[in-house]
């Protein structure tokens, strides 16, 4: 059997689970959760250095960007200008060209502003960035992003941090069927089984933050997600049985006493 590989923006990843590094109790918990998840790519945000408390630990004291792929995001950006500024700074910081673009449109739902997102994708691709794009689950718009040169499309399962799970399986399936770039479900996954469902549909990967960080035992949940993603992928590759409206016995009727 052909080896199942996951390649995004020219990088081969061992794990199909990408994890966020926000919302943890402390950096030690972040690092332990990342380790338990088995992820080889993590999202990070770009923010001002705390100049008043320089002794405060920083993320890179706990996660080494030489050992794990950092995917800088544009969380909190509501315009193309803000997102571009953030990612250009991120590139200068570490030389990363691989980035996660998210341009938000509404503070209550955190839905992406797709007009600004498409505009930003075009500029970033022109500047040589490899862009993984957080987007709505609209197949027409994910196709547009792909045509603009996105390295991966990342439709939401449901609103960021909501934990509502995969709300529109049909749209996600349509996106998977038509996409030539990896499809990674981002945002809204609430628990491990949600990730399995996404992977069983045929997603290339899932991106999880809140569902792990907000769990009562984040390290255990990170491990649960690792297993869930592996299971979901195996199940997708194995191919599920057909659904039938009526029962079909599992034991042979021949030889029945």
């Amino acid at each position: 059997m052909k080896k199942d590989t996951f390649k995004v923006a020219g990088k081969f990843l061992k794990s199909r689970l990408i994890v966020g590094t926000g919302k943890y109790k402390n950096f030690s918990e972040t690092a332990n959760a990342v380790k338990a998840s088995g992820a080889d790519m993590v999202t990070v945000a770009v923010r001002r250095v705390n100049i008043l408390d320089k002794k405060k630990p920083i993320l890179t004291d706990y996660l080494n960007p030489k050992k794990i792929i950092f995917l800088p995001n544009t969380a909190g950006c509501y315009s193309s200008e803000e997102a571009l500024r953030t990612l250009r700074l991120a590139r200068e910081m570490g030389g990363w060209k691989l980035v996660k673009l998210e341009v938000l449109g509404d503070k209550k739902t955190l839905f992406p502003n797709m007009i600004e997102t498409i505009k930003s994708t075009k500029v970033l691709v022109k500047e040589g960035f490899k862009v993984m794009v957080y987007c709505t689950d609209d197949p027409l718009l994910t196709k547009k992003l792909e045509d603009c040169g996105a390295s991966a499309v990342m439709p939401l399962a449901s609103p960021i941090g909501s934990g509502l799970g995969l709300q529109n399986k049909i749209n996600i399936s349509l996106i998977i069927k038509q996409s030539k770039v990896p499809v990674i479900v981002d945002a809204g996954i609430g628990t491990a089984s949600d990730a399995t469902i996404a992977m069983e549909l045929g997603c290339d990967g899932v991106l999880i933050n809140s569902a792990i960080a907000n769990a009562k035992k984040p390290i255990l949940m990170a491990k649960a997600f690792k297993d869930a993603v592996i299971s979901g992928r195996s199940s997708f590759l194995a191919g599920r049985m057909e659904k039938n409206y009526f029962a079909i016995p599992s034991s042979p009727s021949k030889g029945l006493i």
């Binding site: 966020g20 590094t21 926000g22 919302k23 943890y24 950096f27 972040t30 999202t43 990070v44 945000a45 770009v46 923010r47 001002r48 250095v49 100049i51 920083i58 993320l59 890179t60 960007p65 950092f70 800088p72 995001n73 969380a75 250009r88 700074l89 991120a90 200068e92 910081m93 570490g94 960021i160 941090g161 991106l207 933050n209 809140s210």
Partner: peptide, 27 residues
């Protein structure tokens, strides 16, 4: 944005605005 190789060359003047950013945890 100032490239790292230019940090020594760039002299700060009155009223200059400087943003120093780093990576933090995020989703």
């Amino acid at each position: 944005i100032i490239q790292k190789i230019n940090y020594k060359k760039k002299i700060l003047k009155n009223n200059d605005k400087l943003e120093v950013v780093t990576f933090i945890g995020g989703g």
